[in-house]
Simulated scan of single mutants.
Amino acid sequence: MAQQPSARFPFRPVAQLLGSNGPVHALAYSASPGTYILTGSSDRSIRLYNPSSTAPAPVAASNTITSARGPSVSTTPLPAGKLIQTYTSHAHEVLSLAVAPSNATFASAGGDRAVLLWDVATATTLRRFGASSTAHSHAGRVNAVCFAGAGGGDDLVVSGGLDGTVRVWDARSSHPKPVQVLAEARDAVAALAVGLPGSAADAEILAGSVDGRLRAYDVRAGRCVADAFPASVTSVCLARDGRTVLVGTLDSKARLMDRKDGTCLRAYEAGPRRNEELRVQCVLGGGERFVVAGDEMTGDEEQEPGAAGGAGGGGDNQGRLWAWDLLTGKVVAQVPVPWGSGSEARRKVVGRDGKPKERKNVVSCLAWKDGGFGDQFCAGGTSGVVTVFGH
């Protein structure tokens, strides 16, 4: 019997994943039971970690935690998760990752306009869907990738990119052309989600676009339904039953939408939180009890007087993420995300005036274990260090 997720939000850092030489743009847990974590980085590499098999951190990392219940501070160094494998075939930054239900393969996409299908065990690429030299590839960077197929299989790979198209690829065929191209978007496709078999979104592909639309494609019926939002859609997280979807937009809000009639059931926002320029992810977690989102801001930049738990900035532009109760919309935790060991070189950046400046640790990517029903999640961004959170 599956373990029931805790009703408490798991806001305590338990491990850090080291090794990236640049910001982390993509995270994905392995399929159930979610033992491993994949990370995709701007250094063009994908890394596979076991977060539970840890070693002591090389440098002590501050473990300051701020929640709605009050601050709690610990200076215990975070242990480092075990790096198992590194995958290198992308020519540019890795922007999206998806793990097949069988855990035998995974898909990646990035700035080189290609979608790659990998063999986990051998660290080799099985297929390359599109490339700069083919007429069938995306015309720009690929922002999102996911698996689809009958019975929740991995026979189809779906990708969405800067060219505004969603492309469906046959993972079992050697034919270079996509089996379907969905080109209704009027701007870049930033996020994708696919309904699970037997859910209300079975055989549907959801695509969030910078044109402010969330399009739901019913592949079987050949129908497209679009919902309009007041800002660009940059994050899409479909509930397991397919009846609701969490949509993140560039107006600093996340919205829980009813799939049946397109109504907004709840909006999630916090005064100090900002998401107006970058693709910042939001996910459902804790058995879909919580909404979790990253932040473009840090506690050092802006504080809201009287906010639950305070800003917890720590004075070093460390990142932060937010968690809301799904039903009430109340903030349940504001969690600082440390820079982590080995990220010192990325804290400084030279400004346009030629002077060194402190860089923000923008928390842009999230993943929750077991599709939102596990007891752990991870967060990454500018620092290049992925922080794993648990109880």
Rank of each mutant, 00 (worst) to 15 (best):
A15D: 01
A15T: 01
A15I: 01
A15S: 11
Q16A: 13
Q16L: 07
Q16V: 06
L17T: 02
L17S: 06
L18P: 00
L18M: 14
L18E: 03
L18C: 10
G19A: 10
G19K: 05
G19Q: 05
G19R: 03
S20F: 05
S20R: 07
N21K: 15
N21E: 12
N21W: 10
G22W: 07
G22E: 04
P23H: 09
P23Q: 09
P23T: 03
V24Q: 01
H25K: 10
H25G: 15
H25C: 15
H25R: 13
A26L: 05
A26W: 00
A26G: 05
L27S: 05
L27T: 07
L27W: 01
A28D: 11
A28I: 10
A28L: 10
Y29C: 13
S30F: 03
S30A: 09
S30D: 07
A31P: 08
A31G: 14
A31T: 13
A31E: 07
A31Q: 10
A31Y: 00
A31D: 11
S32K: 14
S32Q: 13
S32I: 08
S32W: 07
P33A: 12
P33G: 13
G34V: 01
G34Q: 02
G34N: 03
G34T: 03
T35N: 14
T35W: 08
T35P: 11
Y36F: 14
Y36V: 06
L38I: 10
L38D: 04
L38W: 11
L38K: 04
L38N: 04
T39G: 10
T39D: 09
T39W: 00
T39E: 06
G40R: 00
G40Q: 01
S41K: 02
S41W: 00
S41T: 04
D43C: 11
D43W: 07
D43T: 12
D43E: 08
D43H: 11
R44E: 15
S45P: 09
I46R: 02
R47W: 05
L48I: 03
L48H: 00
Y49W: 04
N50D: 14
N50E: 06
P51V: 04
P51L: 05
P51R: 07
P51H: 04
S52L: 14
S53P: 05
T54W: 09
T54H: 07
T54A: 07
A55I: 08
A55Y: 11
A55L: 13
P56A: 08
